[in-house]
Design a protein around this nucleic acid. Structure first.
Length: 215
DNA sequence: AATAGCCGCAACCGCCCCATA
DNA sequence: ATATGGGGCGGTTGCGGCTAT
């Protein structure tokens, strides 16, 4: 499933994230936010590149991530938007609360594409894979159903981790990040999310301009 | 019970866009 | 106008688990 741990030539770790790394990243981002993905791993004590941290956070550790089976409505939405937008997974994922572009993309490639390739309504410009093995899969039948809220709160495969996310997600997105030296009064009086304050990271004292304070 | 092949998905890679100097 | 750095995005890879034989 995941790639085996390894290191690239610069000594940065690659491959599967360990629970310890997850904890470090989650703790740091929760506390300080993602002010700079490239610098972040250094201060968070991670031997990872910034991109890897960003991906891990956005696709796995971020609060309110919904995992597990897709509802019919979600699949319908993906298919409808894919028909309209093509492979713009981030735009499609934006319409599916709790789903990430990576997850939507994976779901498309592993489930929906096989079925949807047989749907004559699919625009040809988006059709990429017409391999013969797909012929055994039944075409996807779109059925409109009234949306029910419980269909959007599917049980996750990793319920324990999701609960952990839910526990601290309550006010996560609505509240600013605080650290030891942060004073809410330093927020720009205009209301724009901007703050400038010192971080204390280990023995280093930095000034960071934190933009996008509320994410 | 063994094993070969398939599938799902986390993670990496490289390109592109945008902001800033 | 150009260079540079950072973030975002889509395509692809490859391992582990599952299933069929």
């Amino acid at each position: 499933m995941a790639r085996t741990p390894g290191c690239d030539k610069s000594g940065l770790r690659k491959g599967t994230w360990t629970p310890e790394e997850d904890e470090k990243l989650k703790a740091y981002v929760t506390r300080y936010g993602c002010w700079n993905w490239r610098q972040l791993p250094k201060f968070a004590g991670l031997q990872r590149c910034g991109k890897s941290c960003r991906l891990r956070w956005l696709n796995y550790l971020r609060p309110n991530i919904k995992r597990g089976d897709y509802s019919k409505e979600e699949e319908e939405t993906i298919i409808r938007l894919h028909e309209k937008l093509g492979n713009r997974w981030s735009a499609i994922a934006a319409e599916l609360p709790g789903r990430t572009d990576n997850e939507v993309k994976n779901h498309w490639h592993t489930n929906l594409k096989k079925r949807f390739n047989h749907n004559p309504l699919e625009p040809k410009e988006h059709k990429r894979d017409t391999s013969s093995k797909d012929k055994e899969d039944p075409p996807l039948i779109l059925v409109s159903q009234p949306a029910s809220s419980d269909q959007f709160s599917s049980i996750t495969k990793d319920e324990s981790s999701n609960k952990a996310c839910d526990a601290d997600s309550g006010n996560f997105w609505a509240e600013p990040f605080f650290c030891d030296n942060f004073n809410i009064n330093t927020l720009d009086s205009s209301g724009y999310e901007f703050a400038e304050f010192p971080f204390l990271c280990g023995e280093m004292d930095f000034y960071h301009q934190l933009d996008g304070f509320y994410f």
